[in-house]
Write a protein that binds this DNA or RNA. Structure first.
Lengths: 137, 137
DNA sequence: CAGGATCCCGCTAGATACTG
DNA sequence: CAGTATCTAGCGGGATCCTG
């Protein structure tokens, strides 16, 4: 059996990822990205229309109520996974800008829709909850 | 100021939902649906191609490693939010079937893409993590 | 400004046992 | 089969304090 190229091995591996399987890495990746803060950070960096570079404090302001810990943690995770870049400009005080990579942009396309879905269907969900609660009660 | 109809009030309220705001109900809804198990349950019920009705045990088998607690909890939440229906057939033993509502189907369209994104980009993310870890280390 | 480091509470998710 | 009930360990996540 001949040695395969990296591209060949990737192609083979790719079809085998299945988040329905407990041990599959994609299950863990799904868990990471299925996150409120991930959705909101990506949506913020995606901007309305064109993606934009944002500073830490800008993000902190836009994601109302996010703690520094969660924001930093989320950004680090996104950076490590190759979804955002972190650029430090050595001004005084230091300036840090975040922006989506191409990979991040592709995920943002998907995640934005979830946020939009939640906003668009809030009333229907609220109505359903009312109905459910009275029915069960 | 004249009294508004329910539809008018909904139309007004709808545009005001903004998940970036901490107190907004859509923030909490976003948090609920941004969940691994929600994504997987919806993907399972969405089927490959056509949506299908599934029994509890079928779901349990397809979502490898899910605990009964989490599956039941997730299904209840989805039912309450009007995303799935739960149908009990009084056989012995009892048969319970779950299937997507129209609302659930619309969310499934979105959520399925997340699962697919995770599976499709796993290699790239893995590579990015390797690079990040060696860079930091 | 953009975090790092700690402390600590609460709730969640898993494991286990039981039931109509 | 399709759950409910209970217990607990663990950790997610907020609050707080500190720093280059």
């Amino acid at each position: 059996m001949p040695t395969k190229t990296a591209a060949q091995r990737r192609a083979l591996a790719k079809v085998s990822y299945d988040a329905f399987l407990a041990g599959c890495p994609s299950r863990q990746l799904l868990d990471r990205i299925s996150d409120k803060w991930v959705a909101l950070v990506l949506a913020a960096l995606g901007g309305s229309g064109a993606p934009r570079s944002m500073r830490y404090s800008e993000l902190s302001r836009q994601l109302a109520g996010v703690s520094q810990k969660m924001l930093t943690q989320t950004l680090r995770s996104l950076e490590r996974d190759g979804l955002v870049t972190r650029t430090v400009t050595p001004t005084v005080p230091v300036t840090v800008a975040y922006q989506l990579t191409d990979l991040g942009l592709s995920l943002q396309d998907v995640m934005r829709r979830i946020k939009e879905w939640a906003e668009a269907n809030m009333d229907e969900v609220l109505a359903s909850r009312d109905e459910y609660d009275t029915r069960v009660a």
